[in-house]
Design a protein around this nucleic acid. Sequence first.
DNA 1: TGCAGTGTTGCTTC
DNA 2: CGAAGCAACACTGC
Length: 303
Amino acid sequence: MPELPEVHTTVEGLNTVLPKKTITNIWTDYPYSVFWKDKENIKDPKYFKKFKEIFVGAKIINVSRKAKYIIIHTDKGHIIIHMKMTGHLMYGKYSFDTKDKKWKPTDNKSPLADPFNRFIHFCLELSDSKKLVLSDMRKFARVFFTESEHTDHDDIKTLGNDAFFETNNYTELKEAVVNTRSTKPIKTSLMDQNRIAGIGNIYSDEILWSAGIHPKRNPNTITDSEWKKMFSAMKRILKQSMGMGGDSLSDYRNVFGEKGNFQNFHKVYGKKGKRCPKKDCGGIIQRTVIGGRSSHYCNKHQI
DNA sequence: TGCAGTGTTGCTTC
DNA sequence: CGAAGCAACACTGC
């Protein structure tokens, strides 16, 4: 479920193990990789061949992120990974059994009991003999690469400011999200990565609950005092979740296979029919669909 | 058994 | 340009 805090947690983990290591091989059974985003088939194996030509032998400098995009910086260029819905990057947790051509957990637990090994579709082999694997059940994840500045990549350059690192006060949030030509509800606008980047379905519901704003509100009607509340809720909630290693409501794991804790602190997401946890509120959490996404809110204090 | 629902995003159509 | 709907894929749960 990677949204900003989960991607942040993944990048923190990668930075403890990847820098100064060399990529010794690259493996895939599902060639995601693309040279540039274009009209061509992104699964064309010719891109993967090119990818290997450039990056086998590359030395990793460090890892950063912009919104939900992970960027592995090397001396040959940048590898850009988006985990989408079910992607997980894990380091040193799996080895490839060349005999029966299957991925096995390195802790010797039963491969049958492992929830991720069946879905490993991409791997960077490193000079410490460990493997960085991408497990991705639904195959929505994407791996891009570029030899130029990563900020020039088509997928990165259209992103709005990062919700945590690049949004510093309520005015910046308001200016990023408000678009007078658009009537999109506030929830949809908060999740529009080209306006403000990093917020997905869970955190948009949690932020709006905390700020007392109905997810269907037209952003143009939101007052400055409400933007202030939304800004501080956004910062506080993202920081809180990063502090607990992200949200493992579904199947998120960090690069060492460990769960986060934020799923235990949801106020609204997935709480349909429950009493609103806001003190003395007495509302009931509703579920509806906004912009095609499942949305949760309190029917009393979110206006 | 069958189908709605799932954290994300891009493309097509209007 | 913008909105809506669907597509990518595979599994879970009602």
